[in-house]
Design a protein around this nucleic acid. Structure first.
Lengths: 177, 177
DNA sequence: TAAAAATACTCCATAGGTATTTTAT
DNA sequence: ATAAAATACCTATGGAGTATTTTTA
């Protein structure tokens, strides 16, 4: 007994005929006959009542149908679940922030990460931009908020621009212009 | 994704190694490698962490394991259920009883059949032994309580002896001995 | 470096295809 | 008589085996 047989069995019952099911499944009708024959052999009972205009399940067939549908749903569910688990970020993540900003950003980020990615343990490290780059590049930190002198993002790292910091040259009395 | 892959995956996790699982499953180790590789390909994630002394499931692997066990149990359950349903007697059953006995036996039998085989609808027909044989033999009745002159059961029918009826030649005054 | 897993390849069993026959109304 | 399933037979894909290499604590 295998999933292919169950899938085919479901299709045959739903289509009410081997021929129609074969078309839907895009395989030849004799292949279906074979699979169902094997199933019936293994289970030691007829599953379908054959008539000149299609098939209907026997009571044993109906019992199998119920289970087959459940199994097939569980299988789909399993796939989805595994893919979800695989794509869920988790583990320890070290984030480097500049000392000036960390007091302001850290609490907010810990909260937000906790909501979005409950499986992540966030750790905050304080360091200035230059040190931050080294930490991230060497793998001692996973994420860093790094200032860039030019408009280009730091090399060798995956980066995107968060915001732009306006810097003013300010003077009480006009000395430079 | 198929049942074979799931079964093998369960065995590998339980044995903690491809090699041990291969021995338990009585197949070659590379076959297992292939199956798990295919599974991992299809699900787009690693399922096992390989070390030089065996394997342990990743978190995705643990999720799959849980589902795989459920599916495998469900499958076994399905088989049992189908076989049970297939072997449960059901439908209309016509039973022929001799008129003398039917009044006594019929109520008891209807009750008992109802308990043992709830899916059977029992119908009682009254007829003498000779007629009974004809009814059962022709298929108009399914079961019959038939007296046999000799010790051998009625031919052409599946029979077993229910009881033996003692017949006495009784006389008030001794006329025959 | 020593175990366990992965790779390369070969072979065979089972899935699937085509042509035809059988069955049941 | 006709539509549908079964059977017979062939082909191809995927599962399993043997020999060997690669990996990692």
């Amino acid at each position: 007994m295998n999933l292919r047989q169950l899938t085919y069995f479901i299709a045959i019952v739903e289509q009410g005929s081997f021929l129609k099911a074969a078309k839907v499944l895009r395989i030849a009708q004799p292949a279906l006959s074979q699979h169902i024959a094997n199933l019936e052999d293994e289970l030691g009972t007829h599953l379908l009542i054959r008539t000149p205009r299609g098939v209907t399940p026997t009571s044993a067939g109906e019992v199998l149908l119920m289970h087959a549908r459940k199994i097939s749903a569980q299988l789909k569910h399993a796939k989805d679940d595994v893919r979800l688990e695989a794509n869920t970020p988790k583990g320890d993540v070290a984030l480097v922030l500049p000392p000036m900003l960390s007091g302001y950003l850290a609490p907010r980020m810990v909260m937000r990460i906790g909501e979005l990615y409950p499986q992540i343990q966030l750790r905050i490290i304080e360091a200035r931009s230059l040190k931050s780059y080294t930490l991230v590049e060497s793998g001692r930190a996973d994420l860093g908020l790094i200032a860039s002198a030019s408009d280009t993002p730091p090399r060798q790292l995956h980066s995107f621009q968060l915001y732009q910091e306006p810097l003013f040259l300010s003077q009480k009395r006009l000395m430079l212009r």
